[in-house]
Write a protein that binds this DNA or RNA. Structure first.
Lengths: 148, 148
DNA sequence: CACAATTAGATTGCGCACAACTTATCGGGG
DNA sequence: CCCCGATAAGTTGTGCGCAATCTAATTGTG
């Protein structure tokens, strides 16, 4: 029906607008650390991995980003002195992305960021969890369907 | 706490990933019409407005996009023959964005797109409405706080 | 009426996203 | 052992998104 073509009714627009609004909350906070939001996500993965440095592809799988996005982004993180990229010895095609001391140390300083952002959403902890789980379900449903 | 810095726990990542996943669903569908997703959103607003052509700022207020994004986007929609941009007679600073016959006609052909996309999410109608309302609430809370 | 401040839109520059392509390396089958 | 398909990362080109800046038109104030 034609009535479906109304902006306010579209889940996709709500998603698109909420995503940009939340990025707006992150921007000034991450700016204090000289990071963009996608760069912060890459660091989250690296911090989580600890010592075993992921390859570019593994980072891409975690964040659902391809090398076209990650290669220049990682180059910038390397220029900022937060990560190191090195060709794998056993497979020269792979590039392993590791943290520098500065990159690892940043984790402590950035610790309270999620709480600051959560507060800005105006939702309770329970609501945030419910929202996150719905969103994750949407994402996984879509990706599952694409693989078939 | 440090445990908050885990990718899967972050609402923001869920939002970011879901938004891109849903855009992935739209891409091949909108591609049949030669549109990108933001261009489709602009058309949604124009179709909704009917005869009263919004200015660039009014479009921006509806979609929360600024002229830096909209100006080149509208130029492309104009080049595609879907919209016309014209300086307002009574205020030469304003540019009014109207639909061409082709742009207006596209509405009919594109009508079933939201239903196709909704199906791809794997959520029920009720779940989609609940999700949309949560997201809208997040967006509005954030914007309200920013204005103060 | 003059002129400063405001407003509207366009432009520039940067950093994603993503498709398409290129280069280099690897692994398996003849 | 050699080639051939597959895989990994990088590059190029396009289109957002947004900050910062610019130009032009308008409004408010004295």
């Amino acid at each position: 029906m034609t009535d479906d073509l109304v902006l306010r009714r579209q889940v996709c627009f709500a998603l698109y607008a909420a995503s940009r609004a939340l990025t707006d909350v992150y921007r000034p906070i991450l700016d204090e650390f000289g990071l963009t939001y996608p760069q912060y996500l890459v660091l989250l993965v690296l911090w989580e991995r600890g010592d075993d440095a992921p390859t570019v592809s593994e980072l891409g799988a975690a964040l659902r980003l391809d090398s076209g996005t990650l290669s220049p982004l990682l180059k910038r993180l390397e220029a900022a002195g937060l990560v190191v990229r090195s060709r794998s010895a056993r497979d020269e095609r792979r590039v392993e992305v590791g943290l520098t001391a500065d990159g690892a140390a940043l984790r402590q300083r950035i610790g309270e960021v999620p709480a600051r952002v959560a507060r800005a959403t105006g939702l309770t902890q329970a609501e945030l969890v419910a929202l996150r789980d719905s969103l994750t379900r949407v994402t996984e449903t879509i990706h599952r369907q694409k693989e078939q």
